[in-house]
Nucleic acid binder design. Structure first.
Length: 201
DNA sequence: TGCCAGGCCCTCTTTAGGGCCTT
C-alpha cells in the first residue's frame, strides 16, 4: 500500500462554493499498510467558525486566532503529499476543499482521489451504514483522539483502508492494494465488483 | 425561524427523484 496519502479536512461549512473555508487539515502517509508519517495543522483562513461547527469539531475561533495562516499550511500540505494519490472518507467533500484552498495559493491539485465511502459500499454492503464512525465500530478498528478532528479521522480512515487491504487478500487472494486497484474498485458497478477484484488477484 | 451544497449511488431510472456522506 504505497503512494497513498489519507487526508481529512475540518471546515466551516459544507462547500467552498458557499464561502466555507478549511480550519484544519491532517494527512497520513501510508507504506505497506502502515502509517509512516503524519502532517496535521489548524489553519487560520480569517473566517468565523459557526457555533454548530465548534460544537461538532471542538475547533473554536480562539484556537484559530493563534493558528498559522491557511496559505502557509496548504503550501506545506501540498509539499507533504507530493504526487501521491489521496484517499478520503467521502472524497468529493475533501477534494473540493483541497482544490479550492490550493487554488487560493495559486497551486495545482493534480492528485487523484480515492474514496473510502465508495470502497466500503462495495466491500461491506452489509454494514449498518457507511459513516466513518459506524464502520470503525462495526469493523472494530482502533481509534485514537476525538472524532471530527482532522488527525483522528484521518487515522481512522487509514485504519479502514488497511482493513480493506487485508480483507481483499483474505477473501479474494488479492495482494495488490495500490492506487490503480483502489480507483478501479471504487468505479466498478456493484454487480462487477467481484470481477474487478479477480482482475487484480 | 429555518434553511442553505456537491457528488455519488440506487431504482418502481436514464426526459428523475430521493437517500447517503462530509463539515
Amino acid at each position: 500500500m504505497s503512494n497513498l496519502a489519507v487526508i481529512d479536512f475540518e471546515t466551516t461549512g459544507a462547500t467552498p462554493a458557499m464561502g466555507a473555508r478549511a480550519t484544519e487539515v491532517a494527512i497520513c502517509l501510508l507504506e505497506g499498510g502502515r502509517i509512516v508519517d503524519r502532517f496535521a495543522s489548524l489553519m487560520n483562513a480569517g473566517v468565523r467558525v459557526p457555533p454548530f461547527i465548534t460544537q461538532l469539531t471542538g475547533i473554536s475561533n480562539a484556537m484559530l486566532a493563534s493558528a498559522p495562516a491557511a496559505d502557509a499550511v496548504m503550501r506545506e500540505a501540498a509539499r507533504f503529499v507530493g504526487t501521491r494519490t489521496l484517499v478520503a472518507h467521502n472524497a468529493a467533500f475533501d477534494r473540493q476543499f483541497w482544490r479550492a484552498e490550493l487554488l487560493r495559493c495559486d497551486l495545482q491539485a493534480p492528485q487523484p482521489f480515492a474514496c473510502t465511502v465508495r470502497l466500503a459500499r462495495r466491500l461491506y454492503p452489509d454494514a449498518p451504514n457507511h459513516r466513518l464512525g459506524t464502520l470503525a465500530e462495526w469493523l472494530d478498528l482502533p481509534t485514537a483522539g476525538r472524532a471530527h478532528r482532522a488527525l483522528a479521522d484521518a487515522e481512522v480512515t487509514a485504519q479502514l483502508l488497511g482493513r480493506m487491504a487485508r480483507d481483499l487478500d483474505r477473501r479474494h487472494g488479492c495482494t495488490r492494494f495500490d492506487p490503480e486497484v483502489l480507483l478501479a474498485l471504487q468505479g466498478a458497478a456493484r454487480h462487477k465488483v467481484q470481477a474487478c477484484i479477480q482482475q487484480f488477484a
